[in-house]
């Protein structure tokens, strides 16, 4: 079953008087439960592609379906709900909320959903914090954590809502290779436990061994091996 279906996707950025063609026509299907890596050099369009799949950027042309829903025609409120309920994000720079501690950061998306009791929220957050191995640091603020620990919090936060897809844009780029490896192992473990589809981008060929499927991207188009 395809969780994501992309047809003829183009993305143009106006830049001064010229136009940057960041994506020049992408066609792809991603099956549910995949652990997919999108690999390509800097500037090849990885972030742009993930942003469009993640409903935080809009396509210029083409069609993007997530779970059968055409997202290019949704309004801002619907798109926001889509992100909240079906997508989890992991960022290169971790992007935790600095004024919230670990538990609070993980609880954050659940609170936005407004459909769980305080106790349910806490239970679910605790479970994920345990799974990423940060129970001892649950009440620390992000500034008190190492890069690897922060990314673990981000993973817990991305998964806490039980999303269909987790998008990770170069999740290991700001980490040393050992920690980066541990993070990818963790992601893969979570993919196994939670059956969530993972898509992560990287420009580092070394991390590809963690991926189940690999898509190469260059100058806004997918290239065959």
């Amino acid at each position: 079953m395809n969780i994501i279906e992309i047809r003829e996707l183009k993305k143009n950025y106006p830049l001064g008087t010229t136009t940057v063609h960041a994506l020049r026509g992408i066609d792809m299907n991603i099956i549910e439960g995949d652990f997919l890596s999108i690999v390509g050099p800097s500037g090849s369009g990885k972030t742009t592609l993930l942003n469009i799949i993640g409903c935080i950027d809009s396509a210029s042309e083409g069609s993007v379906k997530i779970g059968g829903v055409e997202i290019t025609s949704l309004n801002d409120i619907e798109v926001t709900d889509m992100r909240l309920n079906r997508i989890g994000f992991i960022f290169q720079t971790f992007n935790l909320i600095p004024v919230l501690n670990v538990v609070e950061n993980v609880e954050f998306p659940l609170l936005l959903m407004k459909k769980f009791t305080k106790a349910e929220v806490r239970k679910r957050a605790d479970k994920l914090i345990d799974e990423v191995g940060l129970t001892d640091h649950a009440h620390h603020r992000p500034a008190e954590l190492s890069g690897g620990q922060r990314q673990r919090v981000a993973i817990a936060r991305a998964l806490v809502t039980n999303p269909d897809i987790v998008l990770a844009d170069e999740p290991t780029a700001n980490l040393d290779s050992v920690t980066g490896g541990q993070i990818l192992e963790l992601m893969k473990e979570m993919n196994r436990i939670e059956k969530t589809t993972f898509i992560f981008s990287t420009h580092d060929e070394n991390v590809l061994r963690y991926a189940r499927d690999i898509l190469k991207i260059r100058d806004g188009v997918l290239v065959k091996e």
């Binding site: 935080i56 409120i77 709900d81 994000f89 960022f91 954050f108 936005l112 936060r157």
Partner: peptide, 16 residues
């Protein structure tokens, strides 16, 4: 700014 981007990405509505 990046924080605003993050909370919007996570799913907070504009008005919040």
């Amino acid at each position: 700014t990046r924080e605003i981007g993050t909370i919007r990405a996570i799913g907070m509505q504009k008005k919040d």
